[in-house]
Design a protein around this nucleic acid. Sequence first.
DNA 1: CCAAAAGTGTTGAGTATACACCCATGA
DNA 2: TCATGGGTGTATACTCAACACTTTTGG
Lengths: 246, 246
Amino acid sequence: MNIAEEEESLPKRESDHGGEASAVVPHETEVVRPKVAVDTALFAMEDARLKCYLVQLQAGALASKWAFPGGLVRVGETLDGAARREIEDAAGLRDIYLEQVFSFGDPSRDPDAHVVSVAYMALIPEAGAARLGSRKYADGQWFEVARLPALAYDHTELAGYALQRLRSRLRYMDIARNLLPPTFTMGDLQDIYQSVLERGIDRRNFRRWMLTTDLLERLPGKRRGAHRPATIYAFRKRNEEAFRML
Amino acid sequence: MNIAEEEESLPKRESDHGGEASAVVPHETEVVRPKVAVDTALFAMEDARLKCYLVQLQAGALASKWAFPGGLVRVGETLDGAARREIEDAAGLRDIYLEQVFSFGDPSRDPDAHVVSVAYMALIPEAGAARLGSRKYADGQWFEVARLPALAYDHTELAGYALQRLRSRLRYMDIARNLLPPTFTMGDLQDIYQSVLERGIDRRNFRRWMLTTDLLERLPGKRRGAHRPATIYAFRKRNEEAFRML
DNA sequence: CCAAAAGTGTTGAGTATACACCCATGA
DNA sequence: TCATGGGTGTATACTCAACACTTTTGG
């Protein structure tokens, strides 16, 4: 790839000069290029179900449609940095688990301009930690993954990719730690696996498998609930190493 | 993500106006944005070894360095389309297997400008099919994956990601078909698995496993070589379905 | 004492791996 | 005839999935 070489030889294109984006008129000598954005599918557990966070667009051709929070990448900024900035803007969350998933570049995905979107997946331990209002969007809301509304852009596809990535990571990595508070019970952990993988798992086999991975640490107390008290666990500091399951 | 809303409110940045890219000066009212490029790691088998195709950069701060072929995405063009165009330009290849791998966006990855690069992996059945000279690059060359030279940009990292993706696909999908001619022997197929996974595989177990997947079709003839003639196989039309291995 | 969740153990099926032997060809 | 890769079979270890029983609490 060579920027300096291509920059001059490329023909100017007019095809993206429709819509609202043309409010900004490039200089005659400027070559028009696709823009870069990031969009993040944020997941959390709530009521033993996997949910994801959506906002309602406020402007543009798709105003009032639901979408994942995101925005344009600025010059000098990393992609991860842009995703974190947008998540903090939209939901007031910092230092969360973030992972790049896929890039969407269909020129017609955004009716306002040609925008290449780098999609991210993010995980937080408590849905309640997300601020629902923001400067940029009217209101955020948590939706059950199985019952998402119609989404703007290609975000329905994005949701599928992000979920697929989450499932894959759950099978081979200790990613579940990012969906849990510091301490939890074996039942809490199994809820994650069951709702993300969308299938029942035998309680006893799950327990045995999870303990043999040696990722968990048994803590002294018990959690008291409606029935027999449950052992409290925490994830060990770090294993960094992938492992296998199921 | 909302373009119309952000477009005006974003501050202009000067940080990327060093280097050769500043030959193109944006208009005063134009907002400077990161550019989007695609870069493709092209793989093929040669002498029972996995190789990948590199070109030498001709201009810019990294001229004469080796890199994967790629270039800027044009407005109105899909990412896949841009990758295919660049591969055809660089190596004269069309209708090849192509898969998006990862996007790299570190602002300092290209000393000439802030360029976000969407990385692709491509596979072809014959290394010899690639044209080595091109309009854009001096000469292409096939390198053993285990012995790559120093690469420009973050392309060493790209190579790692692409290889990791290839390994993963080999385990669960019939992606090997894209590295093989229409007909081949069990030995040819095993060469791919061994060189991509970088480990020896028991010949008899490999054969049994591969045949139970039911992806192969036994063809009538035999391939005669230095020793006992080998059965000729072809991949069945399409299974589309993922499967598991090892 | 009963319902419901937590904790512990066993067993059989299916899969993966290691390995032995014979076959067909060119040199 | 021998070196080399091709073709077929078998024994064993291991993992996975199905399932039974007991324990501990709250109501």
